[in-house]
Structures are given as structure tokens and as C-alpha cells.
Amino acid sequence: MSEHDIAASGFHEGQTVALVSDFADGKHRQLSGLTIVAHKLPRGTIGAYYPECNVLNAIDHHDEMSKTPAAKAIPVRIVADRAVAIQ
């Protein structure tokens, strides 16, 4: 995350968080145990690795023509790990 986004979110560098992705299909997707690290990124964006983060992407979230998964554009919420309910 950018330093500005970290400060604005109330989180801090080194904090353990979860990413939550809620697509319109009603399925809850989350990935816990991630650590916030400050990087030079545009505000409102985050960086994350795959294949670990594949769990956040809905199977039908893909390019219509190529059917390539849209893994570079997954809307997520960032929540403190303690605030995430396991479902």
C-alpha cells in the first residue's frame, strides 16, 4: 500500500490484515495473514502476489474474449485480521 493509504486507513506498516473480495455472486472470499508493507504505489491500489491471492478472484471474473482471469483488477476490502469472521 502507499504510505498515504496506510495512514488514511488507520492501519500501520507491519500490521497483519486480510483481503476480502465480495463479487455479485454472493460468495465470501478472503485471504488472511497478510502483512502491510509501504511501497510507492498509486493511492487506492495495493500489490499482492499470486497464486496466493487467486482465492480472491471469482471464476467468472475474466476477459470476455480470451477468458483470461482478470487477476490484475480484483476489488478488495482490507480488514484487520481480528475483525474477519471465518465463514
Rank of each mutant, 00 (worst) to 15 (best):
P75I: 08
G47L: 15
V76S: 08
F23R: 05
D22R: 10
T16V: 06
Q87V: 08
G10Q: 14
R29K: 11
H62S: 05
G10W: 08
H39K: 13
K40A: 12
D22T: 11
T35W: 06
P51R: 10
A80G: 04
A18Y: 04
N57I: 15
I74L: 14
Y49T: 05
A38D: 04
V20E: 12
K67V: 01
I46G: 01
K40N: 12
A38Q: 10
A7C: 07
G44R: 00
Y50R: 14
I6T: 09
L19Y: 07
A58G: 01
G14N: 03
L19E: 01
I59V: 13
A8W: 05
D25W: 09
A48Q: 06
S66G: 07
P69T: 13
A80L: 07
V17Q: 01
D60F: 02
H4L: 13
A18P: 00
M1G: 05
R43S: 15
R43V: 15
E64C: 08
L34E: 07
A58W: 00
A70T: 13
A8T: 14
A73S: 11
G44P: 02
S21W: 12
H4A: 15
K40W: 09
M1H: 07
D5V: 14
V76Q: 14
R29E: 00
G10P: 05
D25L: 12
H12M: 07
A7G: 04
V55K: 14
A24D: 14
V37C: 13
V55H: 09
T45I: 11
Y50P: 07
G47E: 09
A38E: 12
R43D: 15
A71G: 03
M65H: 05
G14R: 02
A38V: 07
V37P: 03
D5L: 11
K72S: 11
R77E: 06
D22H: 11
M65T: 14
I78P: 04
Y50T: 11
I46R: 07
L34I: 04
K67C: 02
A58K: 05
Q30V: 06
E52T: 04
L19S: 02
T35K: 13
